[in-house]
């Protein structure tokens, strides 16, 4: 409960189409490029989320829409028990909707560090998903080659005043801006958790890691797996989709 998780889950609804023709580049461009690669005007996706624990495992299906870096809305479509539960994010504010009671609740600050839907992502991971560009300074720590493609290791150090809890992030980014892994360190530079992207396939007209896995550093038995089922990129989505009313209706 006290462990804080962060970014990138939200990348599955942050998408855009800037083709990645990359030569040698600096770290800032690389990060900016990969964020832009996933982010865009708008996107729509269907994801299966599996929460794995030593004693149990559970999977739910989520449908999500994103627009720009500020707005997103998503709703659970399966299992039937949870169907219709939704979350709306506007900026750093979040609302939660439950169809059974037909209520929208705004998450107070005290809940932001809690797990989102019991997963290894916290509400903060969603709310502050897009801050890596501005809140960190980046440098390239290494380059390697794999399958004919360059893979850059980027060390990202948070700026002193930035409201991020991490001491450092390490990202492995392929030259075509696909993020292969993202590691989160505390201030002692000890690994806290790690997210990996696997099974890079064509989705919605572009290469995309179909499997995302967020895992705690200490154990291999506790993780959350995101599996993209569908992904489409859009030019725009209507304002009306990112409202409290839409949050209620989107799951119906």
């Amino acid at each position: 409960m006290t462990v804080i998780k962060k970014p990138f889950f939200a990348f599955f609804f942050l998408v855009c189409a800037i083709p990645g023709s990359a030569f040698s580049m600096d770290a800032q461009t690389l990060i900016q490029g990969s964020v832009d690669y996933y982010r865009g005007n708008a996107s729509e996706a269907v994801v299966a989320m599996t929460i794995h624990r030593p004693a149990w495992e559970r999977t739910m299906t989520i449908q999500g829409w994103t627009r720009g870096q500020k707005d997103s809305v998503f709703t659970i479509t399966a299992p039937p028990k949870d169907k219709g539960n939704g979350t709306l994010k506007k900026g750093t504010e979040m609302w939660s909707y439950n169809p059974k009671i037909n209520r929208v609740i705004k998450l107070p600050p005290s809940m932001m560090s809690q797990a989102w839907m019991g997963s290894d992502f916290s509400n903060n991971d969603l709310a502050k998903s897009d801050t890596i560009i501005d809140d960190y300074t980046h440098e390239i720590a290494g380059v390697e080659e794999q399958g004919g493609k360059k893979i850059y290791t980027v060390k990202s150090i948070p700026k002193p005043e930035a409201p991020v809890v991490w001491g450092m992030q390490k990202l492995k980014i392929r030259e075509d801006f696909i993020i292969l892994s993202q590691e989160f360190f505390d201030e002692d530079r000890k690994l806290v958790k790690v997210m990996t992207g696997d099974d890079i396939v064509m989705m919605g007209g572009r290469l995309f890691p179909r499997l995302w896995k967020m895992r705690k550093a200490e154990t291999t038995e506790e993780y959350t797996l995101l599996e993209y089922k569908e992904l489409t990129f859009k030019e725009d989505l209507p304002d009306s989709l990112f409202t409290l009313t839409a949050l209620r209706n989107v799951g119906r």
Binding site: G91, T92, P109, M112, A127, P158, P160, P163
Partner: peptide, 21 residues
Amino acid sequence: DYKLVLMSQDTDREIASRAFK
């Protein structure tokens, strides 16, 4: 010298967060 991130609600009832050393 380590960081602490503080989070609260500002006057507009929006979430305000900030890192302190």
